[in-house]
């Protein structure tokens, strides 16, 4: 494998909500254009980590963040323009969220908020993102009907299209398959394979096999600690560095 640059550098990150310690000092790098899997049981701080990366942790005023997360070498807690940072990162939450707008406006929302008004440019962008999210064929005839009226699986792809609409360099997916059917899950996994090497993808997943199928490298987190991080060959092998990783991956606990 060619040597890649780190896209995100996490060093000694700690996050505390009042007296709940969500993350207790974790350090690792996420490389440019890789698919990086994060696995671990519920409550281990995975979502919190994503919130720090795109600074939506700001909306949880009780959260205290120490340590450093750098995106492209810049400390996210100190960036001047958080909105630009958030546009650099696409975020897909566990439950599908169609905004109460038309399908078109759902996808055009972010570019419009960023100041793009020109119709042709928006049309092009909307079509491109819906294609990328494997949704175009299903909705191309009803772009102006409500996004909230789509099925759950379609809404999740709409959410992905929206996450791609501001042309991010990093795409984060937080347990995206938790509320959708297996067919859609496979469709989205295909989408991710297409995106590989075009952007950095962080795939937080509750399905160990999903990380094994898709990721280049995977981190295993538990109770706010990083247990192990490494290439999939090691993490999913019979003898990873940490015994717990083996047990979790093979369903012995978790």
């Amino acid at each position: 494998m060619v040597k890649q640059n780190p896209k995100i550098e996490i060093s000694d990150l700690k996050v505390r909500y009042d007296d709940v310690h969500a993350i207790n000092g974790i350090s690792f790098d996420i490389l440019e254009n890789e698919i990086f899997g994060i696995i671990g049981p519920a409550q281990s701080g995975k979502t919190t980590l994503l919130k720090v990366i795109n600074r939506t942790i700001d909306f949880s005023p009780e959260a205290r963040v120490t340590g450093r997360v750098k995106v492209d070498g810049k400390d996210v807690m100190r960036v001047g323009n958080v909105y630009a940072l958030r546009r650099k990162i696409g975020m897909v939450s566990p439950l599908p969220v169609g905004l109460p707008l038309s399908i078109y406006d759902n996808v055009a929302f972010a570019p419009r908020m960023a100041g793009i008004r020109e119709r042709s440019q928006l049309d092009e962008l909307v079509e491109k993102c819906l294609h990328q999210a494997a949704l175009w064929d299903e909705v191309k005839d009803r772009l102006h009907s409500l996004g909230t009226k789509l099925s759950g699986g379609q809404q999740q792809r709409l959410t992905i299209a929206r996450a791609l609409s501001h042309e991010p360099e990093i795409l984060c997916l937080d347990e995206f398959s938790i509320a959708i059917d297996p067919v859609t899950t496979m469709k989205i996994e295909d989408v991710l394979k297409q995106l590989r090497s075009k952007m950095t993808v962080i795939l937080v997943t509750n399905l160990v096999q999903q990380a094994r199928r898709l990721a280049d490298r995977t981190a295993f987190m538990m109770n706010g600690e990083l247990v192990e991080v490494g290439s999939n060959d090691v993490i999913f092998s019979d003898n990873p560095a940490n015994r717990k990783t083996y047990e979790y991956v093979n369903g012995i606990f978790g």
Partner: peptide
């Protein structure tokens, strides 16, 4: 994709 200073 910058927004105008004025808007901010």
């Amino acid at each position: 994709m910058g927004r105008g200073r004025l808007e901010i």
